[in-house]
Every structure is written in structure tokens, then in C-alpha cells.
Design a protein around this nucleic acid. Sequence first.
DNA 1: TTGTAAGCGTTATCAG
DNA 2: CTGATAACGCTTACAA
Lengths: 337, 337
Amino acid sequence: MIKIKDIAKACNTSSATVSKALRNSEELSPATIERIQKKAKEMGYVPNAYARALKMKRSYSIGIVFHDPTHGGLKHEYFSTVIEAIKSESESEGYAITFLSRSLKMPSDSYLSLARYWNMDGVIVVSEEFTDPGIAELVNSNMPVVTIDYIFPNVTAILSDNSEGMEKLVDYIVSLGHQRIAFIHGEMTDVTKKRLEGYQIALHKHNIPVREEYIKEAYFHRPKDSGHATKELLSLPNPPTCICYPDDISMLGGFTALQQAGLVPGKDISIAGYDGVELSRLYRPCFTTYHQNATELGKEAAKKLIERIENPNAPIPSSVTIQGEVQTGDTVAPLKK
Amino acid sequence: MIKIKDIAKACNTSSATVSKALRNSEELSPATIERIQKKAKEMGYVPNAYARALKMKRSYSIGIVFHDPTHGGLKHEYFSTVIEAIKSESESEGYAITFLSRSLKMPSDSYLSLARYWNMDGVIVVSEEFTDPGIAELVNSNMPVVTIDYIFPNVTAILSDNSEGMEKLVDYIVSLGHQRIAFIHGEMTDVTKKRLEGYQIALHKHNIPVREEYIKEAYFHRPKDSGHATKELLSLPNPPTCICYPDDISMLGGFTALQQAGLVPGKDISIAGYDGVELSRLYRPCFTTYHQNATELGKEAAKKLIERIENPNAPIPSSVTIQGEVQTGDTVAPLKK
DNA sequence: TTGTAAGCGTTATCAG
DNA sequence: CTGATAACGCTTACAA
């Protein structure tokens, strides 16, 4: 590999001059700059990020913490969309993105030390048991961090509007005449708590009592789980007229369970999902669901992180909530009295 | 950040000794090793990958070329599965993965120079217009490369069994009594050529003439496109009894188009997809499709690349084809004569 | 305007 | 068994 010194030799000059020339330094004569740059290109010079970073204490690389063993990782469209957006926003700002992951063969086992090991300028935490002490260590360090859908003190968080989203979704369902609305929610994460909150707010607002037996837990993204919960709801003495699911994939599980019970979703019974993944628009009937703006979420995360990295002395960028929207489909039917 | 020199000072020894101690060098007395390691841990030492790589000419990082602007990037489950698998296999071998991407703000615009810039030990090309000169430059360099689903001379390729897969799928369809089998294929990539080949082989084998009017082109992963093509097929004087699609998402487009035409897929007409994404098993009716083993594909790619990296003088690892399997669902109905 | 030299945090060589 | 020293490729005071 050809390096600065080689160019210097070929140009009868010093490495310092070449280094400056390559970066169009003002202190060099335009003639030298051109001469050197031409030669560099001719010789096929490629700079070395590591050497540069070592000196500049800046790597232009961003780490992503993404660990979602229980739900299929990247396969989950919501997350892959978020990450795709982080990727393209970061790249267009000149940052490379690298997954940060703990593994036996790695020199370290903590996210923080991995980030340091790789000289990352900052880290985005996408999905993780946020209760993991490794995450706490990370956010409490001086490493710039942005989290998605979880709040830590003094850390910029990019939030999906889980409470408002659920509230709007339930509002919509109520507006179609439903009163007996069940909610199968995901495991008890922060996200779930927010969704439950929104669900309750909406019901209260419309003077509908919250019934314990209409609230069930399932795992996110486990259609079978949701199928079971659905059946339990059906067997209630006074079953719901509409069921909300933790996500669109789970709703599909509910869909199947209902069909097996001889019901036609969107007709005999109503159902609503969450996420608004591609499938939800392709499926017939089209899903009634809440579309989370995952792309905007990822983009904003990258932006805020880079802002923080590039203005280390400015106050920590404020958290933002990204709005989604109700996707009115055909799975929630108007209720005839 | 604390560095080797600091530990040396604290231990009244030299950096050389500390460096060796940290890596359990045989030439040090167990006592010193322990003493130094203890101190290092105590001081919260984290090694620096860049400095190490600079010296060792080995970064333990792998680049991924993944650029799929036309089909939604990572959102495509097939690709996200492949990448997830590359990620976990690489990580468990101690390699970090970084996306390689061309961008204005990057110091270079070619994949090869980006890989060099970042000191990558090797690169996996997942999806790209393989005709891109940047890819050619990459595979013709001395950078270790593994490609997925595309063959270059002297480069290890991990292939999905596109020809055999399509052949097996058509075999299965024929076995259910179909003779008029149409194929809506994706744009003319290598993958498509292989699929077409398999389609034709299967038909020949069963003495079924290949009819031009039964072969249509659509874009991969564009359900609307496939919907149009489907309607064209329906309007044929002698329409097919079964239609094969480029992928499961496209099949969904066909599904909808057929319903609109008043037909019940899996009953009045048969359809088959490709990929075997999660959705295909969740949908009712369950998709008849060909399941590509994307996880195995990614895993194998990482393995072969690492093998190549760690044995630079050994011959280039041989290409492998990963088998998938027919997923018999309910969308291809037995044809009653 | 250009060049010298030191240093970023490691590891490898070789001498003690 | 331990330690000086140079080198990896680059940038940056500071000197010329």
C-alpha cells in the first residue's frame, strides 16, 4: 500500500507537505497542491483511516448496539427500517456504521469498552434490554449516545409516540362504535407501558371502563402467542368486539386464530395491529394499524448523535418524539348497534 | 483514556512488558503477568484497536457491501436475514462488521479504496448491481472477497440454488397436475437467469412446451408490478392454471390482483412464491413457495471469508451452493382433470 | 511556502 | 525473563 511518505519521495518533498496538499491546506501554493494531488492519484494513494484517527482522536465511525435475540433481530421490519435509516443518514454525513457486539472472542465484553476499543465517536442504542447494566455503563460514560425508545437522564432519546399512537388508534376504533376493546400487549417494556397508558387514556376519555379481562400479555412478534391470547378473549362471557395487538405480525397470529374460530376479521370481529409494516398494506384485508415512522426515527437518531459529536461543548441535544399515524384499513369494521 | 504506558508506569516496568503481559506471552513469568493484568483491570484499561491494527496490519473487521436502492434495502427480509447471519457468525469469530458505502463525504468513492481506507481484512458483497465497475475493481484486487449469488472468476461465491430451487418448485407444481404454468420473473439479473433456467429444465423434463406468453418480467419486490403481469396472464386466450412469482411479496401483489378478478387463489387458480419469508408461513392460505436458506447463506459467507483471511496462502475457498426447499403451502391446488 | 520532528497507542525485534 | 527502540501511517507545532 502506498503511503504519504512514498508520495513525498516521488515529489521530492516532505510528508508534511503532502499531508497538507492532500487536504487542500491554505498554506500551500496552489501549484504544489495540484502537483502533489496529481501524483497521489496517479500512484493510487488511499488514506488510512486508522492512522488518521489515532492522531486526530476522531474516527468518523458510529457504533450501533442492536441485540434482539428473542424477536429475530434484523428480520423485524421495524428495526431493519430504523437501522437502514441510521445507515443512510450517517453515511451521507461521512460516518461509517459498525455493529457493536459482545462476544467471547472480542477483547472486551462491555459495550462501553467495545466502543472505546473501536474508537467510535458515538453510539446509537437501538434495541436491547435497556435494563442491561452494560447499557447503563454506556449511557453514564462520556461517550456520546442516543437511545431509541428509551429514556435515560442526560441522554438524547428518539421516541416513537407510543402513548399518543395507541391513544389515537383506540380513538379511531371508538369512533367506529366499539366499546368492548381488548388489548393484547407485548412484554412489559417501556414501550409496552406507554402503549398501555395510551390505551387507558383513550378509554377514560370516552368514558369506557377499563376491564382487566380485556388486557392480555403476549410476546412481541410471536404470532402463536397472540393467537392463544385471542382465543382466551373469545371464550370470555362477554368477548370484545375489537382486539388490538402488539404488532402487525402478532395480529396475523390473531387473524388466523379468529378464522379458525369461524370468524371473519373485519366483519364478525375487528382487529388492529401496530407498526404499519409493508405487509400490513399488502395484505387483504388491509390492516388497520398504527404506522410508526421508523425511517424518521432512525434518521433523527443519526442526526442528533452527529450533532452531539460535532458540538461536544454544546448542551446535549434534546429528545424528540416522532409522530406516526393511524392507518385506517379494513380490519376494524364500524359497529352496527 | 488510559494506555499501556500508564500501566507500565504504575507497575514500574516497560510498555513492552505490559504489552506482552496483556496478551499472556509465554516469555513472561506468571507472576508479572498476573500483577500487570490485575493493575490493568484496576485502572480500567481498554486496548485500542486502531493502534493495534496499524502495527499488526490486521483489523479484525469485515466490510459489507450492501446497496439495494430499488428494493428497499434492509427491509427486504431475505437480505436482512443474510446480513443478520453474517453479523452473528463474524462476531462470534471476533470480527466486527461495518457497512461499506460510497458517499460524497467519504474520502473515497470506490469500494476497494473504502475497504483499504478502513483497513478491512475482507469484504462480503451481498447485493449490488454486480455489473458495477466498483465491484469488479474490488473482486480483482488482492482484498479477500466473498460474493453472494454472483460468480466472479477466482472469487468464492455463496450461491442460493436458484436453478434447482425453481426446478424443484415447478416439479412440485407439475406433480399436482398442472401443465399451464406461467412464470413472472424479476429483472434480468443472474439470479433471474438461473431461475428461468430451472423453470425451463423442469418443463422440458415433463415434456411440457415452454410458452413465451407465459413468461413475464416484473421487478422484484414490487407487488404492483406483479399484479399487472398477473392480469395480463389472465387475459390470455388460454390462461395458466398456476403462476410463479419472483418473490413472496410479489406474489402477494398477484394474490390481490386475482381476488379482484374474482378468483380465489389456491382454489380457482394456483400461485407460488419464492423466498419463504416469515410472512409466507403466517398468511392464510399458507404460501406455496421455495424457501431459500438465507441464514445458512450468510453464515457460510462469513465462514469462507474468515477462512480466506486467516489462511492467506491457502487456495481460495471453493464456492458453495446452499440448498433451500419447497414449502408446500395451500396456494397451489391439485388440478382436477 | 516548505520541512523537521514529535507523537497518537500499539507490537516486534533484539539486546541485556 | 525484561526492557529499549523502532515502526505502523498520519497530523501538527514549530522551525527554517
